[in-house]
Amino acid sequence: MTIHKEGYQILFWTAFILLAVNVLSVFYLFTGNQTASTLILIVSVVLFFLVLQFFRKPRRTTPLNDKHVISPCDGTVVVIEEVNEPEYFKEARRQVSIFMSPLNVHINFHPITGTVKYVKYYPGKYLVAWHPKSSTENERTSVVIQAKNGAEILLRQIAGALARRIVWYAKEGQPVEQGHELGFIKFGSRVDLFLPLDAEVKVKIGEKTKGGVTVVADL
């Protein structure tokens, strides 16, 4: 397991700030108070490793299958329902939503192999990721991929109350491969999938998913 490139800058500044806090605590704020300085050091180390684990990049092997829709992220399935998707399809779709806690790996993966047909970024609010309106009012990015059989799915990256930056690598017209990186969401968030109504959903509410591995549905 390595560290994702999206974490380099944040980890550098986190380490710099924590080091500065510890230097100030030892030489200025708590001079002669070994207990206070040691406590600050322990808290700093714990905090740094919490941030470090958030940007971990595990090695994953995706079982390629053109019929499978692979989970785009690590997390917990919180929504499976039929909805009207107004942005791109403008018709009924099967929605599967996966909530990503701050402890999950936050890399996003392409769920299918195909061609990117649509990419759109929306600035917005930062409601908690499980709020019903977060899918339409929060900062978000929508990516539509057309599979080899012509079926299209929409993947929506949604920022949460803590997530303040969405990163996406997909571009319109770009060929993509199942299991390859689509992007990254920094700190607590969710991903929505909008599937054809005839897609056979393979997961259940409350089920844990592993990005790039778990089969969410069959097309």
Rank of each mutant, 00 (worst) to 15 (best):
T2E: 11
H4W: 05
E6G: 02
Y8Q: 04
W13N: 06
V21G: 01
V23Q: 06
L24Q: 09
L24D: 12
Y28T: 11
L29C: 05
F30W: 14
T31I: 08
T31P: 01
T35S: 12
A36D: 07
S44K: 00
V45W: 02
F49V: 15
V51Q: 03
R56C: 06
T61M: 06
T61W: 02
P63H: 05
D66A: 11
D66V: 07
H68Q: 09
V69M: 05
P72H: 03
C73D: 03
D74R: 00
V78H: 01
V78C: 05
E82V: 13
V83I: 15
N84H: 14
N84F: 15
P86S: 13
P86F: 09
E87W: 10
F89M: 07
F89A: 11
A92K: 13
N108K: 09
P111V: 03
T113E: 06
Y121N: 12
K125V: 12
K125E: 15
Y126S: 11
A129T: 10
W130A: 04
W130T: 15
W130D: 10
S135K: 07
A147R: 10
N149K: 09
A159K: 01
Y169Q: 14
A170V: 11
E172N: 12
V176G: 05
G179I: 02
E181P: 01
G183Y: 02
D192P: 12
L195N: 00
E200K: 14
K210H: 09
G211K: 05
G212T: 00
V213T: 08
T214K: 03
T214W: 04
T214C: 09
